[in-house]
Nucleic acid binder design. Structure first.
Lengths: 333, 333
DNA sequence: CCTTCGCGTCGAAGCGCTTCGATGACCTGC
DNA sequence: GCAGGTCATCGAAGCGCTTCGACGCGAAGG
């Protein structure tokens, strides 16, 4: 039971190999009758083009690389959601996805690119001074980044508009009449790493609070319950009249509610809480959290679309910021 | 700046193309001096073999498929950890990983296999009556399954020994002197899906409890705080002297502690809690949970090893059960 | 009626690599 | 001193596909 090749199909259909190829690729006109005959043979023999041969001859592997980070502080569920959406979208464009971890570093990217294993790259969680960025500029293959390096010039970057997300939270709380609010942020290491999104959220939050004339505070925070409890307590001790809390730390969101309960503050009666986190986390919490979602699915879909456009040789914007949306649930009033 | 081919290397080193190939593959003896000359040229020119050409000529793509599920009830962080360990291990064997989602179904597997895109497949979360299993038996490529279908004959399956995990929990609680214990399980849908692992845990738990002559109870449980709270309350109402709780539901583990707190039971003074969950979840909880870990990393590594062995034509065991380990933390005494 | 032009199809030349059989060069042992 | 055997290297034949130029044929145009 040898594997079926295009030559087998050609013989079965009584046409030339090239004709089969053209039927399958649609790159030249083929009469309806011939096309049908070929298609029938393809089905009858169960033909599947050999990926290697196709890649060799056409210089297109129909595979894109997805490079995921796996460092501390990354939210795994979101990453997974993102990956899923990338795979699903890529399949819609008839491409497959090669999964890579960031710890292979620039060399890993160079390897898959130089060996023509992939036609394009998708990098998640790009840092401000990312050592992979200079390499990407040299590569023959196009790439799309999730996140923004210091100089995005000549690159294609996608991200949630975190500054807007921060502002949106401040706006929401201000609109509800709160006068003293605070941001409970990501673990300190995230800020230090300079990934950018944490700072941008903070900046947007502060800007929004200022614009509304609110008293605003902000703290990084680790993810353990004890740390969250301590930070919330600190915030509350320093500002007894604090009545609005923005949480930009998915892992901590649930703990914040627990801590407030223990500290004798009711949510939302005493303190309104707004989270910047995926919807499922917000919904699972009790009370359900008013939240600005991180639309992992949208980001993935958009990133793949941009990459596919680049593969087609189309021009695409350097920067794509996804508009955040605030969903009001039970934790704010 | 054309891409460098093996012919360029051969010319640069003053040898035949085949000699370069043999140097790189090590499949024939090459003199030390020639080898060095070739290696120098490779480096000087920055040569990387073209993956498509290599795959075509050698019939080995050096890529394996990783098929991940994305259904309700799956724990995303564990999935991600698993994927990471698969990628890392595969790289050690000089292979890359093609990421697929289970929703492409049997057709998707058939596609990547028939097109020789991959040399082998790794399927996560196999169900008792998995529609993909009959296909796997027909494929030219070897595969390894995480989980067990009804008839594992002729396949290669890896999993945590969930029955042992359940028993281990019962043993631990019995050893601490508890007489009435209960298992708080996965969401009902997980049992209904017949994935097997939930039942096996339950069976192991019951068996262990019986052997020690304990009173034992068990309930499936959804993941929301409210549901967990309700289930814990029910358990406690029915058995006021319940003093040991096994939680086999990662998402609920944290909520269980919260519920017990609200219900006025101290952990571990009044109730000992043992979880079957990844270490990080157990450690993050407060108090830290005594737990049997789901060793996602081990499973991934082991699965890749088995697949690589099969690719080399070696015989491997049909069934590999990974021994669970119980880590004692603060939540049991 | 003959030229011209598309349209549909074919044949062949690669794409860059692996692998097989062949070829020398050199050594060994009788 | 020569048959036999190694060892290192080479050349060439594919692997299965895409793509380019060529070609035959019927329709349209002069």
């Amino acid at each position: 039971m040898r594997t079926v090749t295009i030559a087998d199909v050609a013989k079965h259909a009584g046409v030339a190999v090239s004709t089969v190829s053209y039927v399958l690729s649609g790159k030249r006109a083929i009469s309806a009758t011939t096309r049908q005959r070929v298609l029938d043979s393809v089905r009858a023999l169960g033909y599947h083009p050999n990926a290697g041969a196709r890649a060799l001859a056409s210089k297109r592997a129909k595979v894109i690389a997805l490079v995921l980070p796996l460092r501390a502080g990354m939210n795994l569920p979101v990453l997974m959601r993102f990956a899923t959406s990338v795979v699903t979208t890529a399949r819609q464009y008839d491409h497959d996805v090669l999964l890579m971890t960031a710890d292979e570093g620039p060399d890993g990217l160079h390897r898959v690119a130089a060996s023509a294993l992939v036609d394009g790259l998708l990098l998640m969680d790009v840092e401000i001074h990312d050592p992979r960025v200079p390499l990407l500029r040299k590569l023959a293959q196009p790439s799309v980044l999730i996140g923004f390096p210091a100089d995005p010039h000549g690159l294609t970057c996608v991200d949630l508009d975190f500054a807007r997300a921060g502002t949106l939270c401040a706006d929401h709380l201000a609109g509800l009449g709160h006068r003293e609010i605070a941001l409970l942020g990501a673990p300190r290491v995230v800020y230090e790493r300079g990934t950018g999104f944490a700072e941008r959220t903070l900046a947007g939050f502060v800007e929004g609070a200022l614009r509304h004339g609110l008293e605003a505070d902000a703290r990084p925070c680790e993810e353990s319950f004890d740390e969250v409890h301590a930070t919330v307590k600190l915030l509350l001790d320093e500002r007894p009249r604090l009545s609005g809390l923005v949480v930009h730390n998915e892992a901590a969101a649930g703990h914040v509610l627990g801590a407030l309960r223990i500290l004798g503050r009711r949510v939302p009666e005493d303190v309104s809480v707004v989270a910047i986190c995926p919807d499922d986390i917000a919904e699972r919490a009790s009370p359900a959290l008013t939240s600005v979602l991180i639309p992992a699915e949208d980001v993935g879909r958009q990133a793949v679309r941009l990459l596919m456009a680049k593969l087609e040789g189309q021009a695409v914007p350097e920067s794509t910021l996804l508009e955040p949306r605030l969903t009001i649930r039970e934790s704010s009033r």
